[in-house]
Amino acid sequence: MAADPYVTLGVARDASPEDIKKAYKKLARANHPDLHPGQPEREAKFKAVSAANALLSDAARRARFDAGEIDADGQERAPPPPRYREYADSDAGARYGGTPDFDDLFADMFEQRARASAAPRRGMDQSYRLTIPFPAAIQGSSETLTLPGGRTLNVKIPPGVEPGQVLKLRGQGDVGRNNGPAGDALIELDIAPHPLFRRDGADIRYELPVSLAEAVLGAAIRIPTPSGPLKVTLPAASDSGQQIRLRGKGVPAHGGQPAGDLLLTLRVVLGTPDPALVEFLRDHAETGASPRQGGEWEA
């Protein structure tokens, strides 16, 4: 059964015939299906509006509907729905096809389209992510990136790259159309964290554990660096927390930037003290000065 025709037209029960006519025209204008081809919801609305208007614009039938003698369908034969668009959309519509120069417009349009599709066009750029080991980011290296298609790219990593830096491989993106140049491959770098080394701008830092004997007496020890092992001389009477700066052993010079330093922070590791040391310290404790001196330490 059809909806309440008063609701459909959006008018009050006691609306005057003029109001009904006005409401109908407004809705008909907004929803006429021939003016809005390809919008079935407007078509349905238009049919409902037309049926409601057919019922309410006829004073006798409106009175019968108000008295409950007929329902909203009211054995009503709604006027046949407009369907010009069905013909106009079909090839038959060519008869009403608009002005002659309209065809030229299309000819132009298609010509442009054809020209555009025949012109050389550069291929698309493609973006990839590549995670490289920490030493590779410092020293530079050559990494292999396997693309989703199975193709592999050889990526030359310059020394001193930063996380998030994008390398551009010219011509390694999508192929161009009609002999246009290929696009680029854009590779964003991730740098895997290192268990020991930490990067601080151009410098590299890490904590160097030393024994008590090495700290007190000094020693020549081999240490790892991103560029390979290195021999350093630990001066006598080195203390825990002391920093050793090895100039030029950080990130190598690159792109006009000078080489960074390698910064070692000493950490004295006691391990299990041997009895002789324990014995010595017991005597020493009585004479040794406390490192906790000054106002803040007076508890």
């Binding site: 090839d91 519509g93 009403y96």
Partner: peptide, 9 residues
């Protein structure tokens, strides 16, 4: 309207 339908065709 004729132009609209011509375009649609």
């Amino acid at each position: 309207l004729d132009q609209v339908y011509a375009l649609r065709r």
